[in-house]
C-alpha cells in the first residue's frame, strides 16, 4: 500500500510517477501541438486565415490597419474601384496599435505597399491591459516570425516559458481551426461588413474614467509605425472613423491631442471623421454606437477613397504619380 511505503520508497515512487506523467504530457503536448500547427496554417476561411495572409502573402497596393473599426468600416472594393489599386483590409477586432505595428513590421519585411491607411480611435493611446492579452493572436507565428517576437513577449515576462508548450500558441483556437478547415471562403479582402441597423439611443452626460493613463509602449509603437512607413516612402493616412456615440474614454482628450502632436511631428495626415456630417447621428448607418453597418461602411469608404483620390490627383499635378509607381517588394 502506498500509505505504508518507507520514506525512500515514497520519494522514489513520487519521482517515477512524476517522470512518467511528465513524459506522457510532453508526448501529448508535442504531438497535439504539431497537429494544431499544421491545421492552423491550412485554414481556408476565418480571421486566422486573414492574419496569415496579411503576414505571409499580402502584396496589395493599399493595406488597411486597425481594429474592429477598420475591419468593418473600409471596403477594399470601393478603394480598388475609386483608386485603381489593389487593396487589403488587415484590420482585426479588439486590437491596438501594438498589434498594428507588429503586423506592419511583418508586412514591410516582405514588401512596401504604396498606401497605408491606419484607423485609430481617438482614445487609442490610453493604456488598457487587454491590449497586451490580445496579442495572443500572434502566438502561432512566434516560432516562424522572429520579427513578431518582441511584441508577443510584451504579454508578460514569462511568455517565452509558456511557449515551451506546443499547444499553448493555439489555446482557444481548436474549434475555429476545425471549422475553418472545412468551410471554404474564396474571398480574401479582410472586410467584414456588419449587417444590422442600430436603434437610435439618447445620449446622456458623459464622464471619462478618472484613471486613464497614456501607455508609453503604445506611443512608441505609433511612432515606429509612422517612421517605418515614412522612411519607405509609403503614403500613410491616419484616420479616426465616425461614431454614433463616443467611447467614454474619448471624452478625455489627452490621447487625441497626443495623436495630433505625433502626426504633426512626422508630417502625416490625421483625418478626424468622428463627426462626419454625412454620417453623424444617422442611426441607420450604424450597427452599434461604435461601428458603421454595411451601408455606412460603403458611404464612409467612398468618402475616404475619394479624398485620397483627390490628394493623389493634386500630387500628380505637382509631379508625383503614385498610382503608376509599383509597390517595392523586398526579396
Amino acid at each position: 500500500m502506498a500509505g505504508n511505503l518507507s520514506i525512500s520508497n515514497s520519494k522514489l515512487l513520487v519521482l517515477v510517477k512524476l517522470t512518467f506523467f511528465l513524459t506522457l504530457l510532453f508526448i501529448a503536448d508535442y504531438s497535439i501541438g504539431d497537429i494544431l500547427r499544421h491545421f492552423y496554417f491550412t485554414q481556408k476561411s476565418g480571421i486566422a486565415r486573414t492574419l496569415t495572409y496579411s503576414i505571409e502573402q499580402s502584396n496589395e497596393d493599399i493595406i488597411i490597419f486597425g481594429s474592429s473599426r477598420a475591419v468593418h468600416h473600409y471596403n477594399p472594393e470601393v478603394f480598388e474601384k475609386t483608386l485603381g489599386m489593389s487593396c487589403f483590409n488587415s484590420g482585426r477586432d479588439g486590437l491596438s496599435i501594438l498589434f498594428y505595428r507588429a503586423l506592419e513590421k511583418a508586412i514591410l519585411n516582405r514588401y512596401a505597399p504604396k498606401i497605408i491607411i491606419l484607423d485609430l480611435p481617438s482614445s487609442e493611446l490610453f493604456a488598457e491591459s487587454t491590449d497586451y492579452d490580445r496579442l495572443s493572436c500572434l502566438l502561432p507565428y512566434y516560432k516562424t516570425h522572429t520579427e513578431l517576437r518582441p511584441f508577443i513577449e510584451m504579454r508578460g515576462k514569462l511568455e517565452r516559458l509558456k511557449l515551451l508548450s506546443r499547444i499553448y500558441p493555439f489555446n482557444g483556437l481548436i474549434l475555429s481551426i476545425i471549422k475553418n478547415n472545412i468551410v471554404i471562403d474564396k474571398k480574401i479582402d479582410g472586410f467584414l461588413p456588419l449587417s444590422n441597423i442600430m436603434k437610435p439611443i439618447e445620449s446622456g452626460k458623459k464622464i471619462p474614467p478618472s484613471d486613464l493613463k497614456i501607455d508609453p509602449n503604445k506611443v512608441n509603437a505609433l511612432r515606429d509605425f509612422i517612421k517605418d512607413a515614412v522612411s519607405r516612402g509609403i503614403r500613410l493616412y491616419i484616420i479616426i472613423s465616425p461614431v454614433y456615440e463616443l467611447d467614454l474614454r474619448a471624452y478625455d482628450q489627452r490621447s487625441l491631442n497626443m495623436l495630433k502632436e505625433i502626426t504633426n511631428e512626422y508630417g502625416v495626415p490625421l483625418w478626424d471623421y468622428t463627426y462626419e456630417p454625412k454620417i453623424v447621428s444617422r442611426a441607420e448607418l450604424f450597427s452599434d454606437p461604435g461601428h458603421l453597418n454595411k451601408t455606412g461602411a460603403e458611404l464612409f469608404s467612398e468618402i475616404i477613397a475619394n479624398r485620397i483620390k483627390g490628394e493623389l490627383e493634386d500630387n500628380v499635378l505637382e509631379g508625383q504619380n503614385i498610382t503608376k509607381s509599383k509597390g517595392s517588394h523586398i526579396k
Binding site: I32, T130, I167, Y168, N171
Partner: peptide, 14 residues
C-alpha cells in the same frame, strides 16, 4: 494528462 491538455487547449490564461 487529458485534463492538462484540455487546460492548455481551452483554458483562459489571461
Amino acid at each position: 494528462v487529458f485534463l492538462v491538455v484540455i487546460i492548455l487547449l481551452i483554458g483562459v490564461f489571461d
